[in-house]
Design a protein around this nucleic acid. Structure first.
Length: 338
DNA sequence: AAATGCTGCAACCGCCGCGAA
DNA sequence: ATTCGCGGCGGTTGCAGCATT
C-alpha cells in the first residue's frame, strides 16, 4: 500500500478538466466494453489519463443514470435527515438518493445545507441547537438587525438607539466570552458582578481584565483608568482575517470556516456550563435575542425621544469604537490561542 | 471598466479496506 | 501470513463565473 505512486505522478498523463472529446472516448469505450479494470481502461480506450481519473469522471459525471439539476426540497430534507444519522458517509447517503453521486451530495452539503442548518441555529455536525459562542454571535447579529429595525421606525432616536444596541451587543459578547472562559466553580454564582477571578484559576491575565471590564460595564462604573487599561492590553500576534468578523459565520471564506470550526471545538471542550453567569440576553436559540431586546427596551423609552437610555449611556460613554475594535480582535485572538 | 472578493463545483489527493496472489 | 493492486471514500484544492467595490 504505502509508497505506491499516485496516478498523477505517472509521467505525461493529463490532469484537470475533461474535454468533450475525452468524454466521448470514455463513454464510447465503456458502452462497448464496460469499464473492466479501471487501471487498464485508459490505455485500451486511447485516453491519456490515469484509471482513477477515468473512474471518477464516469461515476460522477458521465454515468447515464445520473440525475442532474437542483436538489428538490424533499431531497434536501432527506440528505439532512440521513446526515443526522450517518454523518459524513456521503456514499451511504448517496445510496438513498437515486441518481445522485456522493461527490455531488458532499458539495451540496458544504455549500448549501451546512449554511441552512447554521441559519436555523443548528450545529451542522450534531444537528442539535447550537449553544456555543458562535451561536451567541449569530444572536448578536440578530440584535444588530433589530437595531436597524428600530432605527427605521424611530427616526428621531435612530442614531442613539443604534449605538446603544451595538454596545449592548458588545457587552453581551463580553459576557458570553466570560461564560466560556471562566470555570463555574470559581465564580461567585450569587454575586457574580462583585466577584473577581483568582489568577491561579484562570491563569489568564487577560481573562481577569475581561472580568473586571465586564463587572464595570455591567454596573456602569468603569473608571477612566480602567478604560485606559483597554489600550494597555498586550497586542497578540496579528489577527488572521477570518477572525476579524466573527459575525460572519455563514462562511465568507470556506477555508477559514474550517479553521473557525476547530476553534469552535476547542471552546466547546471547556467544561464550563454556560449558566455560570446570569444571562443579560439569553444565548439559547429558543429564546430570541430580538424578543429580549423588545422586553428590555420599554415602549415608553421609544415614545419619548427626549428620554435617555441611561443604562446604555453610562457604559456607552466609555466604549470608544476605535479602541474597542482592537480589543475585540485581541479577545478573539486570545480565544483562538487557548 | 478594472480590480477584488466570493461561490459553487469538478477534479484531485491520500488513505483505507478488501481480495487475490 | 504477508504483500500487492485495486476500487472506494472523505477531505481538499483549483478555477471559472458571478458579484461587489
Amino acid at each position: 500500500m504505502m509508497g505506491r505512486a499516485p496516478c498523477s505522478d505517472e509521467s505525461g498523463l493529463k490532469k484537470g478538466p475533461w474535454t468533450p472529446e475525452e468524454d466521448n472516448i470514455l463513454v464510447d469505450f465503456i458502452q462497448k466494453h464496460g469499464h473492466g479494470s479501471w487501471r487498464a481502461l485508459p490505455k485500451l480506450a486511447g485516453l491519456n489519463r490515469c484509471g482513477k481519473s477515468c473512474r471518477l469522471r464516469w461515476t460522477n459525471y458521465l454515468r447515464p443514470d445520473i440525475k442532474r439539476g437542483k436538489f428538490s426540497e424533499e431531497e434536501q430534507q432527506l440528505i439532512i435527515n440521513l446526515h443526522a444519522v450517518l454523518g459524513n458517509k456521503w456514499s451511504a447517503i448517496a445510496g438513498h438518493l437515486p441518481g445522485r453521486t456522493d461527490n455531488e451530495i458532499k458539495n451540496f452539503w458544504n455549500t448549501h445545507l451546512k449554511k441552512k442548518l447554521l441559519q436555523m441555529g443548528l450545529d451542522p455536525v450534531t444537528h442539535q441547537p447550537r449553544s456555543d459562542h458562535l451561536n451567541l454571535l449569530s444572536s448578536l447579529q440578530q440584535l444588530l438587525t433589530a437595531t436597524n429595525i428600530f432605527t427605521n421606525t424611530l427616526e428621531t432616536n435612530a442614531l442613539r438607539l443604534q449605538s446603544d444596541a451595538t454596545e449592548l451587543a458588545k457587552l453581551q459578547l463580553l459576557h458570553n466570552m466570560l461564560q466560556v472562559l471562566a470555570p463555574a466553580s470559581n465564580l461567585d454564582l450569587l454575586n457574580p458582578f462583585g466577584s473577581s477571578l483568582p489568577d491561579e484559576v484562570l491563569g489568564l491575565d487577560q481573562c481577569s481584565k475581561l472580568q473586571n471590564i465586564y463587572n464595570s460595564c455591567s454596573t456602569g462604573f468603569l473608571s477612566q483608568n480602567q478604560f485606559q487599561n483597554f489600550e494597555g492590553l498586550p497586542q497578540q500576534q496579528s489577527l488572521p482575517t477570518e477572525y476579524n468578523n466573527p459575525m460572519n459565520n455563514g462562511g465568507s471564506n470556506r477555508r477559514s470556516c474550517m479553521k473557525s470550526e476547530k476553534v469552535d471545538e476547542q471552546l466547546c471542550s471547556f467544561s464550563t456550563p454556560l449558566d455560570s453567569l446570569p444571562n443579560l440576553v439569553s444565548a439559547s436559540p429558543e429564546c430570541s435575542t430580538v424578543k429580549q431586546m423588545e422586553n428590555m427596551v420599554t415602549p415608553n423609552e421609544f415614545s419619548d425621544p427626549s428620554s435617555t437610555s441611561t443604562t446604555f449611556e453610562m457604559w456607552g460613554d466609555f466604549i470608544n469604537e476605535e479602541v474597542t475594535d482592537a480589543f475585540w480582535k485581541d479577545l478573539i485572538d486570545q480565544d483562538c490561542n487557548q
